[in-house]
Simulated assay, not measured.
Amino acid sequence: MAPVPNSPFEPDDDPEAYVGLAQQAAEERARAHGWTTVRSLAPGAIITMEYLGGRLNFEVEDGSVTRSWKG
């Protein structure tokens, strides 16, 4: 897999800090920290793998974030 590029559109924010938060709280925090797109997904959801700078992805199970990643 290719390395994740550094984008000038991304906030200086650690995606791991969102793991364990409730979905709504995580989404609100991400937007407040400057993420332009916040995407919440069910476990195992089929998604495209294109990298979009400024997007933060959450995998949400039972209302809590279990995984978080950029792009």
Rank of each mutant, 00 (worst) to 15 (best):
V65G: 09
G34C: 01
V65R: 05
V65M: 01
D13S: 07
E16D: 10
G20L: 00
M49L: 15
F9E: 12
N57V: 01
V19Y: 01
K70I: 07
W35R: 06
P3K: 13
S64W: 14
P5D: 02
A42P: 10
D14Q: 09
A2E: 14
A25I: 08
T36F: 09
K70S: 03
E61Q: 15
V65Q: 07
R31Y: 09
S64R: 15
I47M: 12
W35S: 07
Q24P: 08
I47E: 13
I46N: 11
S7L: 10
A2I: 13
F9D: 15
M1S: 15
V19F: 09
E10A: 06
E59V: 11
D14K: 08
R55F: 01
R31K: 08
L56F: 07
T66Y: 12
V4M: 14
T36H: 06
D62M: 11
A26L: 10
T66A: 11
A17N: 11
V4P: 14
R67S: 12
V60Y: 07
A32W: 03
S40D: 08
V60L: 10
Q24A: 01
E50C: 10
S64E: 15
D14R: 04
D14M: 05
S40Y: 02
V19T: 07
N57Y: 02
G54P: 00
R67Y: 11
A22F: 11
A45W: 10
E28C: 02
D62L: 09
E10P: 09
L52H: 07
A26Q: 01
T66Q: 14
G20Y: 04
E28G: 09
G20T: 03
V38C: 05
Y18D: 00
N57H: 04
L21P: 08
S40P: 04
E59S: 11
W69G: 03
E27Y: 06
D12E: 13
R31G: 08
P8Q: 13
E61H: 13
W35G: 10
G20R: 06
N6L: 15
G34Q: 02
Y51N: 02
V65T: 04
A25C: 12
A30D: 05
E59W: 11
A22C: 07
F9Q: 11
P3H: 12
M1R: 13
I47T: 15
Y51T: 00
V19E: 01
P3Y: 13
E61R: 14
R67T: 10
V38E: 05
P11K: 03
G44N: 00
P8Y: 13
G63F: 11
W35Y: 02
G44E: 07
M1Q: 14
V4H: 12
I47Q: 12
E27A: 08
I46Q: 13
M49R: 14
V38M: 01
L56M: 03
R29F: 02
N6E: 15
D13F: 04
A17S: 10
E10L: 05
T36G: 05
R29Q: 07
E27L: 09
D14N: 06
N6S: 15
S40V: 03
P11V: 07
S64L: 14
M49C: 15
E27G: 00
